[in-house]
């Protein structure tokens, strides 16, 4: 495999396999993400994109294969372990509790407690600190128009929710953010905003993995694209060197992948 990029990948996987009964979801899938890039992952339904992403995020344990993070082999038992190593995932469902506030959701599962007696013995939450940090993270991503961070999430628009989910992923000093179909549920205008948001995230030096069915979105913002088919990666392409229709042809098997 000869990648023009000679740098070391920040996140890589080799020969991932996963079968659910007789259904093979991953059949030797490879993956390489380089620092500071946006990597698009495309593939037809059942190509094993979601399983691979779930494996990288710690949500699914592969039957076999290796995952390397920053040159060190890792094995994640659950999403929390992946998160502790700096891999944040924005799932398609966003994993936010709609009846809780923006602040509650941003810090769900990793709340700050007050220092001293009240935090240690009375388990009191440090709400002032969480509010301040929430406000900071939202305005860093240009989401300052969300005025009231004590608003419950279900009162936000789809794009705003996606924005809050991305802000949560960015907030915890992560190195890699995986976005699963971030624009699937959004209209044209809101998709635009979310794509800008992703470009913003890259500007901050975070590597981004973008899984999407929407070819124009992937080709617009991705630096490189992995094409998956039948449980494995069959091609790595640069969006500026291949046409969208060729990519679709490779993805569906109508065209042979370019020889590397």
């Amino acid at each position: 495999m000869s990648d023009p990029n000679t740098r070391q990948p920040i996140l890589a996987a080799r020969d991932l396999r996963k079968a659910y009964g007789r259904v093979v979801a991953m059949d030797g899938a490879d993956f390489d993400l380089y620092p500071g890039e946006i990597l698009g992952v495309i593939g037809d339904n059942g190509a094993g994109k979601s399983s691979m992403i779930a494996a990288l995020a710690g949500a699914v344990r592969p039957d076999s294969g290796e995952i390397w993070l920053g040159g060190e082999q890792v094995r994640f038992a659950n999403p929390m372990e992946a998160r502790a190593k700096g891999i944040e995932t924005v799932f398609q469902t966003l994993a936010m509790a709609p009846a809780l506030t923006i602040v509650d959701n941003l810090f769900l599962g990793r709340e700050y407690r007050k220092p001293g007696f009240r935090g240690r013995w009375l388990r009191a939450l440090d709400r002032t600190r969480m509010r301040a940090e929430a406000r900071k993270h939202l305005s860093e991503l240009g989401l300052a128009t969300i005025q009231n961070i004590d608003q419950v999430v279900e009162t936000l628009s789809g794009g705003q929710r996606q924005g809050v989910a991305v802000a949560r992923a960015c907030a915890f000093g992560s190195r890699v953010i995986i976005l699963d179909e971030p624009t699937a549920a959004l209209g044209v205008k809101e998709s635009r905003k979310v794509l800008d948001l992703i470009l913003d995230v890259r500007r901050r030096g975070i590597s981004v993995v973008l899984i999407s069915h929407n070819m124009p979105h992937v080709f617009e913002i991705a630096d490189r694209v992995h094409i998956h088919r039948l449980g494995r990666r069959i091609a790595q392409v640069r969006p500026d060197q291949i046409s969208m229709s060729d990519a679709v042809a490779i993805m569906t098997g109508a065209m042979a992948p370019p020889t590397e």
Partner: peptide, 28 residues
């Protein structure tokens, strides 16, 4: 009231009831 509104455990009770999958993915 204090437990539900001022501690992480209380917020987790709400999250588990509101969206168990979201709560699970958040590490609860």
């Amino acid at each position: 009231w204090y437990m539900l509104n001022r501690t992480a455990y209380g917020r987790h009770i709400y999250a588990v009831g509101n969206d168990p999958e979201a709560a699970r993915l958040s590490g609860i």
